[in-house]
């Protein structure tokens, strides 16, 4: 009860504080630089120069403190030892590139980077183009889209249950092993099979992200001008040619956006690995390793170094996004 009260009071106080800030500073500005009187036009000009910064102020402070400052602070910390006091130069990075677990994480992240965006985008494209042709397509879309709402942790429980393993001879309660034994095979402790277990974890993310890809690509497919498709049909193109030669080239930009969005998500993947294996049996990834070193081992230097590696991996996409956004705003 006390907690609900505490949370409600905070929401109300927070909202009132925000409103008070915006309303108060605006009123103060109007009072200080009135729009009437002998210097009205000069006042209006000065007020218009100041007001945007009143609107932007809180956002800029929070963004600066919570996203910009940490980038530089992480860089600084990654050049220092575990306590963050003694300068070690590139020591943490040198250690990283000699560490077997780090190299394993990089390899696994690469696998994730190739497999998940490709599979999710492909399946999303298939789902989008198929569901658009049938009457119950929107229901099907809803159901394929549904895993988007499920947390990575919830999805991990769902899929751990699917991969559950009982010794041979016992009745299997996991769907995958039940299917394997029904087909005459031996049950396998899937999660512990090196290398291939990575793909079992990736399937979870593909399962979640396919709906996202489908929704975006479906909208893009609908945006294709009818005339191009009609012209191709008149020229005798079959449905597959229409799809691959006419439609795909026209939504190439959207496919790239979907691909990069999933790529960024994949680079930061943490919860699924943390909940399913915690990096055992050769499934470690960068974000989980970063968590381990920072908050289990308490080594902020090494943890920050891994975070910086992640930042470097994201940087090209960041530059690409900014360039695209600037081109559109022109």
């Amino acid at each position: 009860m006390g907690q609900i009260l505490y949370a409600s009071v905070t929401i109300i106080a927070g909202v009132l504080l925000c409103v008070a800030y915006f309303w108060g500073t605006n009123a103060a500005l109007d009072r200080l630089l009135p729009m009437r009187g002998p210097r009205a036009s000069a006042n209006v000009r000065r007020a218009n120069a100041i007001r945007p910064w009143l609107f932007l102020g809180p956002s800029m402070v929070i963004l600066g403190l919570y996203l910009v400052y940490p980038v530089f602070n992480s860089l600084w910390l990654s050049l220092h030892d575990a306590s963050g006091r003694d300068f070690v130069g590139l020591g943490n990075y040198v250690w990283l590139f000699g560490d077997a677990k780090f190299l394993e994480s990089v390899r696994n992240n690469m696998l994730w980077l190739v497999f998940v965006p490709a599979a999710a985008t492909f399946l999303g494209l298939v789902a989008a183009s198929l569901t658009d042709r049938i009457a119950w397509g929107s229901l099907a879309k809803s159901l394929i889209f549904m895993p988007m709402a499920i947390s990575f942790v919830g999805a991990a429980v769902i899929w751990k249950f699917v991969y559950d393993y009982r010794a041979a001879g016992q009745e299997q309660i996991g769907l995958l092993n039940a299917a394997v034994t029904a087909l005459g095979g031996d049950p396998v402790a899937w999660i512990t099979v090196p290398f291939w277990n990575n793909f079992l974890l990736m399937i979870i993310l593909v399962w979640i992200q396919t709906g996202f890809a489908m929704v975006i690509l479906s909208a893009a497919l609908r945006g294709i001008p009818e005339e191009t498709v009609e012209a191709a049909i008149l020229d005798g193109a079959n449905p597959f040619q229409v799809f691959w030669r006419i439609k795909i080239p026209q939504i190439r930009g959207t496919i790239a956006v979907v691909w990069t969005t999933i790529t960024i998500l994949v680079l930061k993947i943490f919860d699924i690995v943390f909940a399913m294996t915690n990096g055992q049996w050769g499934t470690q990834v960068l974000a989980n390793m970063m968590y381990d070193w920072s908050f289990r081992a308490g080594d902020f230097g090494r943890g920050s170094a891994i975070a910086i590696i992640l930042m470097l991996a994201v940087a090209p996409i960041m530059v690409w996004n900014i360039r695209n956004a600037r081109r559109e705003n022109r």
């Binding site: 996203l67 940490p70 908050f295």
Partner: peptide, 9 residues
């Protein structure tokens, strides 16, 4: 797109 991981520590 700044990774969350960067901000934690």
């Amino acid at each position: 797109v700044v990774p969350l991981q960067l901000s934690l520590i």
